[in-house]
Design a protein around this nucleic acid. Structure first.
Lengths: 122, 122
DNA sequence: TGAACATATGAGTAATTGTTCATATGTTCA
DNA sequence: TGAACATATGAACAATTACTCATATGTTCA
């Protein structure tokens, strides 16, 4: 049983592909670009330092310095991670003199964190 | 103004820590272990191959071979990722002869994916 | 203006991770 | 039983990533 695309590299050796299902599912998949964006989005949640930062900001707006103190990490490490969170539009900041205060910029965040918690708690 | 823990390494040079806020927030943080589990959970969603697999399975139960065909990837690569998804209890499988069918094992998954989509679509 | 402070950032490094390749495990059927 | 098939897995490698260190940017205040 041929797969019908001789010009492509053969990826799968199985001879019994269920072609209808494959076609059907393929038709209902989100665009590749959207998939990559989604993965990048969740990647941001896939680091404990960033999760901690989000939980802190869920509780209170905070400056970089206090975040570092709270999480027992260097100012630089926190600053780097805040940059990642900001790029993904999860946090925003405002300046007050020398100090820069960060806060959550999206209301989905607690929902997403809670869904995650529900899962890992079975 | 001392921070009051001389035995610890000094992580933050700022001299103006807002101690009350730090204390308050610290008291309301989830356990470290839970934070790590959460990060590990979201890490699983932070890869486009795994996201694709989840979207496929959201649509239909499927064998490893068909997944590889659908996503244009090797059987081995898919199998490795299915292992990760299974360890996180996101997918389950059943055997039927030589074939092993995978399907979603958790109803939160579509909710979580949708929350992510909502965010990246602004 | 210049010193002190709060934050940001680039380069370097160690650790993690996704894929490939080769091969092992487990099932069916002649 | 042994050949063919479907899936799983370990080792190796390339790419990514989180942190550190040094330093740059930007603000305040004397």
């Amino acid at each position: 049983m041929e797969h019908g695309h001789g010009e492509e590299v053969e990826r799968c050796e199985c001879t019994h592909v269920h072609e209808e299902v494959v076609k059907d599912v393929t038709a209902h998949m989100p665009d590749d670009e959207k998939i990559y964006d989604l993965a990048d989005f969740f990647k941001v949640f896939g680091d404990s330092t960033r999760i901690k930062i989000l939980y802190v900001l869920l509780c209170s707006e905070m400056c970089v310095c206090d975040l570092a103190e709270t999480l027992h990490m260097t100012q630089s490490a926190i600053s780097h991670q805040l940059r990642v969170l900001k790029q993904m539009a999860l946090v925003k900041n405002r300046r007050e003199g020398k100090t820069i205060y960060y806060s959550l910029s999206d209301s989905h965040i607690s929902t997403i964190l809670n869904q995650g918690l529900e899962h890992i708690e079975e």
